[in-house]
Amino acid sequence: MGITYQIFGMRPDKLFNRLLVYGGSVVVLFYILGPFLWLVSSSFQPEQNLLDRDGSLFPTEWDFTAYRELLTGFLYDASSGIPYQARIFLRSMLNSLIVAGGVAVLSILIGSVAAYPLARMKFKGRNFLMFFILGTRLIPAIALAVPFYLMVKAVGMNDRLETLIVINLSFILPYVIWLLQAYYRSIPMELEEAARIDGCSRLGTLFRIILPLSLPGMVSTGILAFLLSWGDFFFALILTQSQSSFTSTVVASMFATDVDVKYVSIICAGVLSVIPPVSFALIFQRYIMSGLLSGAAKG
């Protein structure tokens, strides 16, 4: 390390690194949020301004009606003049939360156990099993809608949140298992072997060594599972028929009818839909960051 001079109290390579990081962050922020900012800006405008060719990119007139209706609609009944879709929107967000949260928790519970033998145990038919699990997910859902519906009706489970949880779970589990086994593989084998020598059972090593070490992977996988089912529209459309189980993706699309479209309400619903997943990510991200170092120290 022969370099001794500094710029702004930093070595030149360090400074270059910082510039790269902050420059990159600005670009990423712009890329990710650019289109979304258009949504946010539109959500505060009265509808006629959206179609203004020369209108400003930012709201000149502020209009909060759509947000107010979506957020407080559940307090009112039809006589208030607030549209039906707005009155059931918050309820549908809760339904979406239940489904996505349920799928995330269950898929991690089931998936983290299932991924272990695929990553760590050698047995006949392992690759076959891996592709069997993934193979169930390769047929587009559209082609399976009718048989799914038939099955759900046959067992009398139509229009229920439990059904949405189970169906989404079965579609998301393969991804969760594949991901977790990949994360498990990146944990050094020596740690596990040491534990085995100390007399730990397979289940014991899984719970004491593997799971704590792959916490970042598990949390990201959980967020992934949450997001995949949060975004589901197709199953929610087919398998729900009343407000007790409509999810927010279904209700958001109900603002478009054969006769008219309430664009601002749809856009506001979109902006609101972003809040739960992003807040979850904020809450859980310290686990993504904790990483191998802290895990190994505890282990």
């Binding site: 039906y84 809608a145 009718v146 519906y149 038939l150 009706k153 139509n158 459309l237 087919i238 028929q241 009343s242 279904v250 699309s253 109900m254 478009a256 009818t257 054969d258």
Partner: peptide, 22 residues
Amino acid sequence: FLPIPSDSYHDKMVSDFATGTG
């Protein structure tokens, strides 16, 4: 009255009819 999103009305109803509608 139990509404269904407009854009998907046809697809949902086809699935519903094919499986015995309520």
